[in-house]
Amino acid sequence: MKKTILKFVTATALLTSGLLVSASASEISKLDVKKECNVEANGVEKVLATATKYNEMAIKNKVEFMRLGMKTSQYIEAVDAALKSGAKNIDIVDDKKKKTSEATIEYAAWRACTFAISALTQEEESKKTWKLASPSDGYKY
């Protein structure tokens, strides 16, 4: 009896996690980057939370964005630290963590959010389009 219950619980858990994954893929396709990452409408904290949520998925899927040596997760960490310290700006750093520029926390939160969501929507899109670039599959010339 115990074994049957265990099997049932395991199967339910597996099915649920499967549904969550597919629901996430569907959710991602419908995400509106402009709306989700609008700092004026949502505030820095909420946009940062959105960035954190989707960038974790991007890292898990190995599609995290980076620009000039700075990963999305570094933007998120920098904005989070600035919010805690009350700083208005964050440092933009290169791949050796050397400061190259500055950005406002609003701008950095927006960038982290758009990068995080775009990485996932692009991944979904490319699953349907990648063969169009392959000469042996769909590429016509």
Binding site: Q122, W130, A133
Partner: peptide, 18 residues
């Protein structure tokens, strides 16, 4: 190789095939 990646939305193929 053929999937578009990164914030520039480029695939390896866009540079080295097309």
């Amino acid at each position: 190789y053929y999937s578009q990646k990164g914030y520039l939305k480029l695939s390896c193929a866009e540079c080295h095939i097309q």
